[in-house]
Write a protein that binds this DNA or RNA. Structure first.
Lengths: 205, 205
DNA sequence: TGTAAAAATGAACAATGTTCATTTACTTTG
DNA sequence: CAAAGTAAATGAACATTGTTCATTTTTACA
């Protein structure tokens, strides 16, 4: 059955090749330039072939979104070195913000665009595993903060969601260009400055 | 010059009619169903006519976005009755969240979608007056809170942006369906519950 | 080597935003 | 009031998208 194995490998390889082409286009030129035609052309295959390996464009974008979460998980690894939960929480936000700033299109795909969620809907998948795992990193850290006496009187889950929202909101407003033209003195540093306020704030809790 | 006046009025009327049709489509069926053709058809004019009154689709979406800010300003009026700045701040967030929940597509257009900002870029407009005015409502309230002794040690502007981010982030995650499937016990109430944590938090400051 | 299965192709379709030559309606003028 | 000129409206046509599927090409195997 060596031939079948090789064929399976070739299928996997081509699927990976399509994704690689899609990723490069996505990172270099953004979502709207990442068309099925441009993907096919970039890897010298026909449009129809792409559809043999992916159900539709949402499936491709969902795969890219998953790759984004892998990247982000990788970035989170530096947090293993931070022992104090409170310091780890602060660093977590910093890493998250850094990721969003460095990969705005990917961030949008992961946390804003409809495509990945529409894909999950289409395959009747209830869970959003990538988001769940990421939220758990935060939630676990918050619970550890509470275990050593912080955030008394708060509920860990909604508090974690609040923190996620706070950081996501800053990234989202920045990426969608809602910071400039709003009378903010240093719009280029507003996210950093606002996050500094957040740190000041939780240092009191 | 009565004729010219009447003609000017007719131009304004038709422009308003196009917007009315666009608004209805937008509210009823969402952005992607709001096509130039569907707008034209809904008011019994041709596609070409729409382009005589609006430069392109971004111009229409920008007008709708401005209407959204008018709505939101209207909703803010109830805040005039709240004298205590701290209570007003809390109520401001509630009204904002309510607006986003009631008008998710409009909220997306106002705070997430590229179209309105691309329109501003296209006409070389640096300022985002709608956003600016809305941010000022928040910023002013925060400054009033500080004037009566709250948020000591904080800078009003980045703190205001932080609060905006927090509330926007919750709305944004909800609208882009990032709350369900993330292991949250009551995803349908997570925004309300998380905002309650925020209120608990600022009550200490 | 010939045949059946698998893989790849790209023309074709529907829907979109946009343009522009043509037609229609209206205003002004002699 | 009729003709000429101007303004407004039209909708066919174009380019670009995601998507499909009949056809062609390649591969596996007897």
């Amino acid at each position: 059955m060596a031939i079948a194995d090789r064929k399976a490998k070739e299928k996997d390889d081509l699927k990976a090749l399509i994704l690689k082409g899609a990723k490069k286009l996505f990172v270099d030129k953004g979502v709207e330039q990442t068309t099925i035609r441009s993907i096919a052309e970039s890897i010298d295959y026909s449009v129809g072939t792409v559809y043999l390996y992916f159900k539709d464009k949402n499936a491709i974008l969902h795969s890219l979104h998953t790759q984004g979460f892998s990247q982000l998980s990788g970035d989170f690894k530096v947090l293993y070195n931070v022992n104090d939960p409170m310091e780890r929480l602060k660093a977590l936000g910093k890493v998250y913000i850094q990721f969003a700033g460095d990969n705005p299109d990917m961030y949008d795909l992961m946390f804003t665009l409809k495509a990945p969620m529409d894909f999950l809907d289409a395959i009747n998948e209830e869970e959003w595993n990538e988001g769940k795992a990421t939220f758990d990193v935060l939630h676990t850290t918050v619970k550890q903060c509470m275990a050593i006496g912080h955030f008394t009187g708060h509920k860990s889950e909604p508090l974690s969601f609040m923190i996620w929202s706070l950081v996501h909101g800053m990234c989202s407003l920045e990426i969608s260009k809602r910071c400039t033209g709003v009378n903010i003195k240093n719009p280029e540093h507003i996210v950093t400055n606002a996050y500094a306020e957040f740190i000041k704030l939780i240092d009191k809790l």
